[in-house]
């Protein structure tokens, strides 16, 4: 890859410009949401011409879909890096919280604006959720088999967790004004959820 031909330099430059546009688009979307992020502002922030944005992304929708896609890839990769086939559910959920906390602004806009966003977004979003669901389902099935958590249909376990976490993110101003809802309350939510689904320990049984 050490060739410095004009073609390879141009290709590298082009990739770098695309990366910069995407990075600034993400920052703007995190700050003001997807619906209100204009390509002209992205161009200004990335210090490229407005036309240059469309060289790399055919439309505003394509750019926004790329923003969600990039976020999806990061979350998927982070969860997959947990990798080990035997991570307990608690560890997977803790990682999920970390991933979301690091992108809480973007996530919040995505959740708030989802019904208003163009079609392409759906697929990207379900892609993220599928990766999350996959890891949660595998870990939950292992914990159920080992008797550590109760037998609960996987989709209800998943949706109960997601509902709880997303509720705190969407209504962040009620739970952690001006701060990250998940960095503030994530640990509490995780403890609570695990408490709900765990099988009673011998100790708590003997208390009754």
């Amino acid at each position: 890859m050490s060739s410095h031909s004009p073609e390879s330099q141009r290709a590298a430059q082009k990739a770098e410009t695309r990366r910069r546009i995407l990075e600034h688009a993400r920052r703007l979307c995190a700050r003001r949401g997807f619906a209100r992020t204009r390509t002209v502002d992205v161009a200004k922030a990335a210090r490229v011409s407005h036309g240059s944005v469309f060289v790399h992304f055919p439309s505003r929708e394509a750019l926004m879909a790329a923003v969600v896609g990039e976020m999806a890839r990061e979350i998927t990769d982070a969860l997959h890096a947990l990798g080990s086939q035997d991570a307990p559910l608690r560890e997977v959920l803790a990682k999920h919280l970390d991933c979301l906390a690091d992108r809480e602004d973007e996530l919040r806009w995505l959740l708030l604006e989802a019904p208003l966003l163009p079609k392409g977004f759906d697929a990207e979003w379900v892609g993220v959720q599928s990766a999350v669901a996959h890891h949660i389902a595998e870990a939950a099935a292992r914990d159920m088999a080992a008797g550590r958590i109760r037998e609960i249909p996987l989709h209800l376990l998943f949706n109960t967790w997601i509902g709880l976490v997303h509720h705190y993110v969407i209504h962040r101003e009620l739970f952690a004004p001006g701060r990250s809802a998940l960095k503030t309350h994530g640990r509490e939510l995780l403890d609570h959820f695990m408490g709900l689904i765990s099988t009673p320990t011998p100790k708590s049984r003997s208390k009754r």
């Binding site: 379900v126 599928s130 669901a133 996959h134 949660i136 389902a137 996987l154 989709h155 998943f158 949706n159």
Partner: peptide, 8 residues
């Protein structure tokens, strides 16, 4: 089937 089973 996976989407139904894990996400309902």
């Amino acid at each position: 089937a996976f989407l139904q089973r894990t996400q309902g």
